[in-house]
Design a protein around this nucleic acid. Structure first.
Lengths: 208, 208
DNA sequence: TTCTGTTTTTGACCAATGTCAAAACGTAGT
DNA sequence: ACTACGTTTTGACATTGGTCAAAAACAGAA
């Protein structure tokens, strides 16, 4: 098994071999593409459980992100620093795949941080091991391709929202599309996520 | 090279078998992944040339977009209508892959239009035929997967720009990253693309 | 050239949102 | 219940960018 403590550089990673069960992950991917039992086995062999607690970091800016993660339960945020302010640009919850994408793909240092909003359980696979799977199993390559399609469409929607909608519209969108965010994330982070100031968010909420 | 007869109607696709040469496409994809000669042959067999002239539409909102296109030369824009205004949200130029992505993937009617900014030559492949290729050739599946990664990263950058940068910063970004847009696209479209009004764009340009 | 239609710029004004500072609120710990 | 801390709201003001209308610049056709 790979020693991922090195790449993540946190003393607080906890491995719980006795709890290893990737059923939720397998069940989730089954909802968008069926991979062979053999490929599932292979995935299983490469996945490592990662447990972190609130406020810890999964990825730190400046470091190369060498893993992709499946979030079994918990909540994360991705943020980067822009003239002294933290800009939160995404959240992740149960059943999301998570990584610092640009860094993971290009091997460049990450420009963003990924931090735990709640204590979380994740499954990690390294880039090298993922590449093994992609080489060996056409159906895993397809699974990834289809996953990318979903994530691309999600990002496209957020882009249009960001560029062309008012603060009020963005908030209403959030309310109707992803209300769970409001229940689990401090408003300061939500404001940043919506691309507005916390004060404006507060006022928008006030007049509904 | 290409005629522009009066017989071209706004929705007409013109096929010119005698001009079929997908060398540029093959050369382009070679820059990010090598596919076998056999797979190249298969792609070749499925591609159809499409020639359209300025202001014609490649995709119209409300219709399902069933093809993905490679733009050999020319320029396109994607736009949708929002309370009476046309919002241009992307441009495509030589060597870009183009489709109404959400529609193509989900088989829903397109919400956007794709219109020609210049007379263009494209290569089209239908969703069914692409699926044949994806089933038959693991290396084409990989090619697509890698292409998605590039496009995802590109969109991520645009998203961050859109959500968190000022009009001036966005324009300066455009100048340094994609100056060719300014040389080939009317400023009205560019303003929309940057998410600002044409007047603001004009003023921003004025004070540089 | 002149005419005509389109694109771009300019000006006056206004609405939306940001900034800074202070107050109010909530919650955990004692 | 009280304190201390972090989060959220409120108020006053500044700034950005949008809107509308008109003027100027530009391009193509006659």
């Amino acid at each position: 098994m790979v020693q991922s403590t090195k790449s993540i550089q946190h003393s607080s990673l906890i491995y719980l071999p006795e709890l290893r069960t990737i059923q939720q992950l397998l069940k989730h991917i089954e909802t968008f593409y069926h991979v062979s039992a053999e490929a599932q086995q292979a995935m299983h062999a490469f996945l490592e459980q990662v447990v972190l607690s609130k406020n810890e970091y999964l990825v730190k800016e400046g470091k190369i992100c060498r893993h992709i993660y499946f979030l079994e339960h918990g909540a994360l945020r991705g943020f980067y620093n822009l003239d002294g302010k933290e800009i939160t640009h995404w959240f992740a919850f149960e059943k999301d795949f998570v990584t610092s994408f640009h860094s993971f793909i290009t091997h460049q240092p990450a420009v963003e941080n990924i931090q735990l909003i709640e204590g979380s359980v994740l499954w990690a696979i390294s880039k090298e091991n993922l590449n093994c799977l992609l080489n060996e199993y056409h159906d895993i390559e397809r699974l990834v391709r289809i996953a990318y399609e979903k994530y691309y469409i999600r990002l496209e929607e957020r882009f249009v929202n960001a560029q062309f909608k008012s603060a009020l519209e963005r908030y209403q969108n959030l309310l109707s599309q992803t209300p769970h965010i409001l229940e689990r994330v401090p408003l300061g982070y939500v404001a940043s996520y919506l691309g507005i100031s916390q004060e404006t968010l507060s006022r928008v909420r006030g007049r509904l």
